[in-house]
């Protein structure tokens, strides 16, 4: 094994640089990733009901009043729901990209998004 693995000083340097860049990229993505988030998409039973900006404080009645979503301080929080378990109401507010609040009984999905994002995350063949 030793005869195969003869890494020179510059090889180690290269390895360290690559690991550092990877770490930096990871760190930057964690930092910046949430920044693009500026709106919430509300879906009921899979169909989009509306897209609302996180920038302005507002209260949104979903599904004719079964759920009440409150946007305040760039965060979206489910304030009221008429379902028995109240799981979505107890969930903490969402503000970062791709965070979501889901109310299963009413089939309501609230997802944070950035408005520049295209409809598709990726295309595969």
């Amino acid at each position: 094994m030793k005869t195969f693995l003869k890494l020179k000083k510059k090889d180690w340097l290269l390895i360290i640089i690559i690991i550092c860049v990877a770490g930096l990229a990871f760190f930057l993505h964690e930092k910046i990733g949430g920044r693009g988030a500026n709106c919430v998409t509300i879906k009921v039973d899979g169909t989009i009901q509306g897209v609302y900006s996180l920038a302005e404080d507002q209260e949104i009645e979903i599904n004719g009043g079964t759920n009440l979503l409150v946007i305040r301080n760039q965060e979206a929080n489910m304030k009221e729901a008429d379902c028995p378990d109240q799981l979505c109401v107890h969930q903490k507010p969402v503000s970062k990209n791709h965070e979501s609040i889901i109310c299963l009984p009413n089939k309501v999905v609230v997802e944070v998004d950035s408005s520049e994002n295209s409809e598709f995350d990726a295309v595969t063949n």
Binding site: I19, A22, A25, H29, S118, F120, A122
Partner: peptide
């Protein structure tokens, strides 16, 4: 794909 959302893959692919 015309987005930069693939960038989250950079660290994984580098390593």
């Amino acid at each position: 794909v015309e987005t930069f959302s693939v960038t989250y893959y950079i660290p994984v692919l580098l390593i």
